[in-house]
Design a protein around this nucleic acid. Structure first.
Lengths: 217, 217
DNA sequence: GCGTAAACTTACTGGCAAGTAGATTCTGCC
DNA sequence: GGCAGAATCTACTTGCCAGTAAGTTTACGC
């Protein structure tokens, strides 16, 4: 039961540092077990802290999870935002390309974060589902705006607006799914993943924009 | 006395009928709360039966969940299989088209089933995750075989094989994600969803097959 | 009719995990 | 040095829920 043997009794740390450690531990534990199966004892243990600390600093289990979601969502969004920000104005396809690369890069080096956001948060329902689906909706709208603006610029406005949101949802889902697939096939670079999607999606868009349509025979 | 009293009290029913009722209830409850948050009491309650029945017929909570997954996965696969089976040999794009339509049709009229399979099963981990990811892998491989065979027939074999699995994963994910999006935008017909995806994906494939490539500038 | 097995119930146990009370250090500051 | 208060712990209480023991009722074959 004695924890780490040779530490001179973990020093006292200022609150914000401990909070960060606890949140890190929580993300890891939640990503491994999911919200319900995760225990506060384990979170405290992984954080190297006793349970009352967790409650004192982060509140209830729901509060803690909520805070994880919020922090990780912000990190992801910041990573992507930072990845697409440049001085020049970007063509829409380059925008998408940079966004996808940033996304995959983030997922690649923050698996736990991604797992919590993508798999665990959705399955809990209630408050969290709202927060997550809001983030998701924002991503989709962002992508949709690229799609729609490209479409309208080319003069197929009505159709683009109608299907834009749906296509964007599909694209976001494709990226998410590819990220999951990546976990089982790590011997691929993130640029490759992004370029697969670009090839699939942008070439398809290109045809649509030029008026090509697939229809069943 | 004799059976003159007609209580609305559920009559005694043969085992297989009850088992079906219990499984139906379980799918509903699991889809609403997820594995851990769902209680066996509620399952029994929704099924209109007492708890020991559930244990007698279906075993432990894990067994029950497992059986739900198995049954619903089979129903989904059967629905899609049935949707693409015809007498004639189908062109690959028509195969994909029919498959997508069947998939969306199933999801549309079996929301609970889809939720359990897609959202809940993944988040539990362990045995279930294996079963689910096996089903998923099979779907992806199926799609991949269509993609790859189309590619090789057109003479870009090497590249098609390399990216085929990834593209298939992306496509499957796009379909799943579009299915989720549909839940929030139900005023779209399932054929429309399928045709959006076909337009996106098949036109993109078409270009790839003809050697077109998008690359960053 | 009547006995037997299958269908079904009530009412419990046991354990795990969320959340807390209250005592106990340490640390910065005068 | 000593004290105020923040940081931290041990050791509980509480409630829920998976799983079960043991009994009761009904269908149905003969």
């Amino acid at each position: 039961m004695s924890r780490s043997t040779q530490q001179p009794r973990a020093r006292r740390l200022p609150r914000d540092v401990r909070e960060r450690q606890i949140l890190d531990a929580a993300v890891q534990v939640f990503s491994q077990h999911g919200f319900h199966a995760a225990s506060m004892d384990e979170v405290a243990d992984v954080a190297g802290v006793s349970k009352p600390m967790v409650y004192t600093y982060l509140g209830s289990k729901e509060d803690l999870f909520s805070e994880c979601i919020r922090r990780e969502a912000k990190r992801l969004i910041d990573a992507v935002t930072e990845g697409v920000s440049t001085d020049d104005e970007l063509a829409p396809d380059m925008l998408l390309w940079l966004g996808l690369r940033s996304f995959f890069r983030y997922v690649g080096s923050n698996r736990d974060s991604w797992t919590v956001l993508h798999r665990q948060a959705l399955s809990v329902g209630g408050t969290f589902a709202d927060e997550i689906s809001e983030m998701r909706t924002r991503s989709i709208e962002l992508v949709a705006s690229v799609v729609v603006s490209t479409g309208t610029k080319q003069g197929i406005g009505e159709q683009a607006e109608k299907s834009g949101a749906g296509l964007a949802a599909a694209l976001v889902g494709a990226a998410e799914s590819l990220a999951d697939w990546w976990i089982d096939h790590p011997d691929v670079e993130e640029g490759t993943l992004a370029s697969w999607l670009m090839n699939l999606v942008w070439l398809g868009f290109g045809d649509l924009v030029q008026g090509a349509v697939w229809r069943p025979r």
